[in-house]
Computed example of a mutant assay.
Amino acid sequence: MSDSEIFARARRRLRRDRAAPGFGDFAFLRDHMLEGLLERLDAVKREFRDVLDLGSFAGDLAIPGARIAHLDAGFRFAKAAGGVQADEDRIPFADASFDLVIAAGTLDQVNDVPGALTLTRRVLRPDGLFLGAFLGAGTLATLRGAFLAAETDRPAARFHPQIDVRSAGDLLSRAGFALPVSDVETLTVRYAGLPNLLRDLRGMAGTNLLRDASPLRRETLFAAAQAFAGRADPDGRVPERFEIVYLTGWAPDPSQPKPARPGSATSSLAEALKPKG
């Protein structure tokens, strides 16, 4: 493990193995992401035969007529999916192996996101499609505020760095994708209390994976629970935000549309803005 890595790879594998047996009860974010990605896929009028499910969880991705390879960092998830255990920034497949890669719900837990996207582009065939979704900047804003209120003197490192939608698009371009698109969707879930939210995060393998994570003391948890409850709506439930960033990019191919060359326009902006006579 490199000293520059922010996530503990072994801890991530362990958390995923612990979550695997009951993951179906906590899969609502993964299910929502897959639904959004498959809607985007439906808009593409072509067939994809060889597909990589990158960060597959239990392997619930289904695309009629496609051969789907599954990869997950957790042994139990990879075994349940009949796939390969590996990290997303250490993809073991050969270049140009797939014409579609789908990554739903894991890229926000990867040490080297630019590297993962570059490897994803490399395992795609020319004009292959990448569709991704992950939790981005603004996620768990209420929980963050509750812990800041509980640890006002010395806030501990309890939350992962987050990627905003603009940076996500830039990462696609840096990784060599053509026609990159990024957009964001806000999903709000209302909780009766902090224990309910923490139960969901554990169940989806979404708890703190930082290498320098500090132990959570009982008094801190109690204070955070009180601060969380203080943000409740009149009905006693607390809204929590999940910001889902969606990514679309294509492996470069000469057949793809090219941006116009600077200066190639046939009329000037000044001409276009002149009043019509």
Rank of each mutant, 00 (worst) to 15 (best):
R121D: 06
G115K: 00
V238E: 06
G115R: 00
L129D: 01
P64M: 05
L29G: 04
A146V: 04
F98C: 10
E47C: 11
L140A: 04
P161G: 08
R76A: 15
S182Q: 10
P262C: 07
P64R: 13
P234I: 07
T142R: 13
A62G: 06
L140N: 04
E5A: 15
Y191K: 11
L29C: 04
A27M: 04
R174C: 09
R237K: 09
A19C: 02
D235P: 07
G230H: 06
R211I: 11
E271K: 13
A78R: 10
A96F: 03
V184G: 08
G136S: 04
A213H: 11
L247P: 04
F48A: 03
V123G: 03
A225P: 03
D164Q: 05
P275K: 11
Q162K: 12
G145V: 02
V110I: 05
A43D: 09
E88W: 00
D72R: 01
S2Q: 12
P92M: 09
A20P: 04
M204Y: 02
E185K: 03
R202Q: 13
K274V: 06
L148N: 11
V44F: 03
A225K: 09
L209P: 08
R11M: 14
V51T: 05
T266K: 10
P126M: 01
T118A: 15
D153N: 03
T139G: 02
T106Q: 07
I244Y: 02
V84M: 04
G136K: 02
V238L: 07
S182D: 09
S173M: 09
I102L: 15
G277A: 14
A94W: 03
L197A: 08
S267K: 12
F147H: 08
L209H: 13
A58W: 03
A146C: 06
L117M: 06
P252S: 12
A205D: 07
M204L: 07
A78T: 08
A58C: 11
G203H: 05
T139S: 15
R30F: 14
G203M: 05
S56L: 06
S264L: 08
E243Q: 12
A73I: 11
A260C: 05
E151V: 10
V101H: 03
A272V: 09
D60E: 14
R90Q: 15
L171I: 10
A81I: 10
K79H: 15
A8K: 06
A43V: 07
D17I: 12
Q256K: 05
G138S: 02
R241H: 08
L41A: 11
L201Y: 10
F93P: 09
R125V: 14
S167C: 06
V165S: 01
